[in-house]
Design a protein around this nucleic acid. Structure first.
Length: 120
RNA sequence: CGAGCAGGCCAGGCGGCCGCGGCGCCGCUUCGGCGGCGUCGAGGAACGUCCGGGCUCCACAGGGCAGGGUGGUUGUUAACGGCAACCCGGGGUGACCCGCGGGAAAGUGCCACAGAGAACAGACCGCCGCGGCUCGCGAGAGCGCGCGGUAAGGGUGAAACGGUGGUGUAAGAGACCACCAGCGUCCCGGGUGACCGGGACGGCUCGGUAAACCCCACCCGGAGCAAGGUCAAGAGGGACCUUCGGGUCCUGCGCGGAUGUUCGAGGGCGGCCCGCCCGAGUCCGCGGGUAGACCGCACGAGCCCAUCGGCGACGGUGGGCCCAGAUGGAUGGCCGUCACCCGGGGCAACGCGGUGACGCGCUCCGGGGACAGAACCCGGCGUAUCGGCCUGCUCGUCCA
RNA sequence: CGGGACGUGGCGCAGCUUGGUAGCGCACCCGCUUUGGGAGCGGGGGGUCGCAGGUUCAAAUCCUGUCGUCCCGA
């Protein structure tokens, strides 16, 4: 799992990260912000009451923490992410959540294109 | 063997890889932490928050009136609205189960519709007597008739002012009698008690509803671990120093308005009134600051075993054990395997039964494993829960 | 942690205080009106009163438990 130092633990950290880039995939929404500071990367999780009861919420959180822990070493220092779980995440298994997380991260890392591509 | 009743228990096991939090020891450290080893790490409901207590702070001067809760008895307990045993009423063939189970002759209210009449009741039909009229020779019969008697019968209703049989009567009626049911008073016996059993007498019968108001008995200070405490930080103001960035010390939000200081604001004594006490601030608006750490906080009405008392809830004694403490919130993630349950396929092999189809064990495949996450602690209650196990008991059927 | 409100046809609400008939608006169906539609007029259908138990002759209403939703204070 993630040690304490690698987790976002205050309201201020969460707000700062949430104002960064955002991407959604499947049951997850990921906020990403590269601060450029020299400390290790950190992650935070938001699982609201809409996802389920305490048992379901804890299970989702624990799975996400493990998934992030497997990936966090590869990120550049100073990166903060916030992973928010949608109600769909309650029925998602480990593999499914991993796919959602990777997809959302890849999408968030891509530089945002200005304007939308209009369909022909 | 089949139905069923009651009580209790479990909450998958093992292994691999990768992790998280607390505590202890050791080592390193730039004093922020890091590493290693050891050890501990969710529940029977941790849940809902329906009760009761511990603990902490506030208050303690009482009186009256309101308010809330409980409601068979006796126990049990720190306490309870819990639990145990028993009593009463109801249900079941039975084991057993269910009951907010005080008072309706203290008072008030309500009882729709139907029905003649619904609470110190009521003559619609019927029944009976007298009178009237009609018919008939007459005995008598009849009536959309009048006056009176009558609560036995009909019908309505949840409920119609005791039941059955007789005496009696014009017809009837507890008007009277016998038995039965119920009520009240007294006596005897049993029980700590609720109450039970028996007897005598009485008037003969007095509806339901208090989960309607109410009456009676008993109980009840207010808040809540964001309780409460220690420390740090802080905006503004003042003084001093200054290299004009700031630093040190003291005090500790600033501004405006209302009201008040023995002619007393405001607060406290759970609410109101009286009374008493403390007493110089209190309230409103605008603007600003803080949002940290530690203690409380894990030895407790604690758990396990034995034994004694008690029908039991429970209590006494002795021995052993230390058993979660997070704070964007740890106690896990992934995989394998073995047992368990469900569904489907197969007899190719083995075992049992059957002539056999096949069934069971077996084997192959697929699926399932619930309800649910500590947040100051404890005792209960209530609710959710895939399934499995144990003990005692009841009824039915068959065999000996 | 403490306190409060609500649940009634498809939707939004009354009725609960003082227990006996569940009502209103929109929507739906049928008819009239119109060339047709809308509007209007007339008629009609539709409700386990969140769930379970209890009190009562009788419960949407009273009591207890339970489920869900929402709000307020610290």
């Amino acid at each position: 799992m993630l040690p304490k130092a690698a987790r976002l633990r205050s309201r201020a950290d969460f707000s700062a990260t949430t104002r960064g880039r955002r991407a959604a995939r499947g049951a997850l929404v990921v906020h990403l912000k590269v601060t450029g500071e020299g400390r290790p990367a950190r992650a935070g999780f938001v699982v609201s009451k809409a996802v389920g009861g305490a048992v379901v919420r804890n299970r989702v959180k624990r799975r996400l923490r493990h998934l992030v822990a497997e990936r966090i070493g590869a990120w550049e220092p100073g990166t903060d992410i916030v992973v928010r779980a949608l109600p769909l995440a309650a029925g998602r298994d480990h593999t499914g959540l991993g796919a959602d997380l990777d997809g959302a991260l890849a999408s968030a890392r891509q530089p945002r294109k200005h304007g939308r591509e209009r369909p022909k």
